[in-house]
């Protein structure tokens, strides 16, 4: 049991436990702050998957942007939402939630079944990558590598993404502006 394994299991446990807390909690503010914990632990998992640049992007974009947006939306949507939430029943597994629980568990069983039937040591493309030394080593500096491939190999998706971001920006500003009497 190396330190990396210990860190992986710890972070994986934090991710799953905080996600379960989100599923069980009735309080919207607690949900949002537990989502913060989930995202931070996920960034740690990305580091353990040797994707440090993705981890930093996760922290900057999600924790810095998305969570602040969610807290804003919560504050702007007033106290009726809170009153609505308190009116729900106080059981984690109530009868109305049973189909959703069954569906989620059944889907999980399907996914785990597929996972345990797959032999990950004999996947052909993984073996090819190992044979051609195409595997990221823990001491590789990947950020420059990602930057180069973003501007050369993935230039078209990158530019399409920038157009989509512009469209989302204009669309969000248009939706949330005050209604004119036109």
């Amino acid at each position: 049991m190396t330190l990396v394994k210990v860190m992986f299991y710890l972070l994986g446990f934090i991710v799953l436990a905080s996600a379960l807390f989100i599923a069980a909690s009735k309080n919207l503010v607690r949900t949002i702050f537990m989502f913060f914990v989930t995202l931070m632990a996920l960034a740690g998992l990305y580091v353990l998957a040797l994707a440090d640049f993705i981890a930093i992007t996760q922290i900057v974009v999600y924790v810095g942007g998305v969570l602040v947006l969610m807290i804003f939306a919560f504050m702007l949507s007033g106290r009726d939402t809170l009153a609505n939430l308190q009116a729900q029943q106080n059981h984690f597994i109530s009868f109305s939630k049973l189909p959703a629980l069954l569906l989620a568990i059944a889907f999980f069983i399907v996914l785990v079944n597929v996972l345990f039937r797959t032999d990950f040591n004999s996947l052909p493309w993984v073996n090819d990558a190992i044979a051609q030394k195409n595997v990221i080593a823990p001491n590789d500096a990947m950020t420059g590598n990602i930057g180069v491939s973003l501007i050369t190999r993935y230039l078209l998706p990158f530019e399409i993404l920038s157009i989509l971001l512009l469209a989302a920006l204009v669309g969000a500003a248009h939706i949330s502006r005050k209604e004119q009497s036109a």
């Binding site: 994707a51 992007t57 195409n134 990221i136 590789d140 990947m142 590598n145 990602i146 190999r153 993935y154």
Partner: peptide
């Protein structure tokens, strides 16, 4: 992790974020 040269997984993770 198994695509060091062309960086497919990490780049599209970035796009997904």
């Amino acid at each position: 992790k198994y695509d060091k040269i062309s960086n497919g997984g990490q780049t599209f993770a970035l796009f997904a974020i």
